[in-house]
């Protein structure tokens, strides 16, 4: 038992120590870029063709290197500024995977299996494009959106008012972001990356430098704390599974082409580990699970997981979230099963 605890602790710490730099990098990079990219000019250049739009949307992650916790506020902002559904959905599903930091982290973890790195990108692109394209059939997206977002699309309000709107629907426990305490007790204003940016833009130039830095700092500390905690919980789960679950169970599960994919998809949905660092989590299973199942974890996890569903519900109605979930899950399953059966 003593040995097991020691092994689990070493595994746990090594996951954390290797992942921390990438987490920090992701948080800093996305925070800084949010300040410098002019979205309106970007949106004007987006293609109108749904298929192409979804594909281009999938690549926007290169400009906003966010993980799956940061992409929802950005996607919401894009939608509200009139970006078409395929672009927004493509971005939502692919941005957590297709961005330089995540690709670097995946490469770090799977240096000796480069096919995992490449296929992770390719599969995420395929799935994001197909799902985005499917959503283009629904020309009027509003019935699928939360009322507040739908309203914002219909009649654009002045930026600051839309963004700092009062949160009244639903539980706030599962909503990520910063909240400003209002002047009345119990009143809360939700602050997320979009509000951060709006505040930054609205800040008078006289005191802007200090205030900008201070907001960026605030944002960094918060995200680091929040995502760091999720990373710790995820690493603890990975270490515990490695050490506590009997070898026969893991091997039986991990060797089957179908069971391994199903198990890894389930795990990715539950663990909710951030996409910048999930490749290290997957790595700890690399010797026992099929390549297809590792890919399933790496492709599906960033798209939809327990933590992400809470965030997605701040944009979409439950019906739309279920569509997204089912289609993405099926496509991931088919693609990675194909790898297990016919390639590796």
């Amino acid at each position: 038992m003593d040995q097991k605890l020691n092994n689990a602790f070493t595994l746990f710490l090594s996951l954390l120590v290797e992942a921390m730099p990438f987490l920090l990098l992701g948080v800093l990079f996305s925070g800084v870029l949010l300040l410098f990219i002019d979205e309106r000019r970007l949106i004007a250049k987006l293609p109108k063709n749904p298929m192409l739009g979804a594909l281009v949307g999938s690549f926007i992650g290169f400009l906003f290197p966010v993980c799956e916790c940061g992409n929802v506020p950005v996607a919401r902002r894009l939608l509200m500024q009139g970006v078409s559904a395929p672009v927004a959905i493509g971005f939502l599903l692919a941005a957590p995977t297709i961005n330089p930091i995540v690709i670097w982290a995946t490469w770090t973890a799977f240096r000796d299996q480069p096919e995992i790195v490449v296929l992770r990108i390719v599969f995420s692109l395929i799935i994001a494009t197909i799902v985005g394209w499917m959503f283009s059939v629904q020309t009027n997206l509003r019935p699928l959106l939360q009322p507040a977002i739908a309203l914002a699309i219909k009649q654009p309000e002045p930026e600051g008012r839309v963004l700092a709107r009062r949160e009244s629907e639903g539980s706030e426990l599962l909503r990520s972001g910063t909240f400003l305490l209002g002047s009345q007790p119990g009143q809360m204003l939700r602050l997320d990356a979009s509000v951060l940016q709006a505040t930054l833009v609205a800040t008078p130039p006289a005191q802007s430098q200090i205030k900008r830095l201070s907001l960026l700092l605030e944002n960094t500390v918060q995200e680091l704390r929040e995502l760091g905690a999720v990373l710790i919980v995820g690493s603890a789960i990975a270490a515990a599974i490695q050490v506590l679950v009997p070898r026969e169970v893991i091997l039986n599960l991990g060797a089957g082409p179908v069971s391994s994919v199903a198990a890894m998809m389930l795990l990715s949905g539950l663990v909710s580990i951030c996409s910048t660092v999930d490749s290290f989590f997957a790595l700890s299973f690399a010797s026992m699970f099929t390549s297809g199942s590792l890919l399933a974890f790496l492709v599906f996890g960033p798209m939809i997981d327990l933590k992400g569903v809470g965030l997605l519900l701040s944009i979409f109605k439950p019906r739309a979230v279920i569509y997204l979930f089912v289609v993405a899950a099926q496509l991931t399953f088919l693609l990675t099963l194909f790898i297990n059966l016919y390639v590796s």
Partner: peptide
């Protein structure tokens, strides 16, 4: 006076406690 408070995925204070404890 009061500026920013956070309500996030975990109840306030829990995330930082997890980080600190680990």
């Amino acid at each position: 006076a009061s500026r920013v408070a956070h309500l996030t995925l975990f109840p306030p204070g829990l995330s930082s406690s997890i980080l600190l404890l680990t």
